[in-house]
Write a protein that binds this DNA or RNA. Sequence first.
DNA 1: AGGATTTACATCGCGCACGATTTAATCGGG
DNA 2: CCCGATTAAATCGTGCGCGATGTAAATCCT
Lengths: 150, 150
Amino acid sequence: MTKADSPSHEDLMKLDNFLCFAIYSTNHAFTRVYKPLLDELDLTYPQYLVMVVLWEKDDQTVGSLGERLFLESSTLTPMLKRLEGMGYISRIRDRTDERQVRVTLTESGRALREKANNVPYDIAGATGMKPAELVRLKQEIASLRTSLLR
Amino acid sequence: MTKADSPSHEDLMKLDNFLCFAIYSTNHAFTRVYKPLLDELDLTYPQYLVMVVLWEKDDQTVGSLGERLFLESSTLTPMLKRLEGMGYISRIRDRTDERQVRVTLTESGRALREKANNVPYDIAGATGMKPAELVRLKQEIASLRTSLLR
DNA sequence: AGGATTTACATCGCGCACGATTTAATCGGG
DNA sequence: CCCGATTAAATCGTGCGCGATGTAAATCCT
């Protein structure tokens, strides 16, 4: 394929030219880099993301967590039960609207934040990218996500 | 955060500033976009990636598929058994090295390629990006993956 | 007011995905 | 030639992740 041409069909059918596969495999790579760091906190990677959302804003419903993380209640409910079992959060039905479950940090959950302080720096280091590059790439990918969900 | 500063710690702890989350959530978004297209082929998204690898080069071992896709045998073995059950591939122990399993396309597996012809175009369309942009972004993300796995 | 509809979460079944372990085959050194 | 080490898959247990479905509460509508 030359610079001026559109990719040929043969090119498009090669795995290495799939943007989705780049994303897919890089996502797995991130999970592997996070693993040893999160093992210290007894968290999985998705559980860590939930904690990040709660550290940012405590006392949210299952629905609002799902909206933030793009996850369904069928994914979150079991995850939240595990986090509750570990003592990091509590799940309580909302008094005024019993359909909703309010998720709040426990003391232990708030304390965990300090232990997790270094994680973003370690990860940023593993990317080998400069902060400004990271921000730009992140933004590009986020806007791709928006296109896909449109 | 101003243009000249490094991100503050508070910034770094916000979910929206996580490159990993952009990747994670965009990966899920891709899965959703692929779903209706792949339903026609009776394939899941990871199964489709396996088929793409085999369409590119038939007759591979479980190990080489895993190297290509960054997956372990514990993931591939059950997946390959499903694809075999659907009649798209066959799994046969290598005569000369009985430790290896050779994965080859069946006639039905090769035929499926034609039915899948339009998929890359539909996906490219859903990204809303120009071919050249797609290639550049894909390359950037692939090199990020390389850094992470180093 | 009260039945129909909508909303929020939970449950279930299925398919990844991995680490740890197991099994079987091959390789290598003495 | 044989026994220990290595290699390739498979197996097992755990945790996402989703769509379809269920359940109960809130809301809507006349």
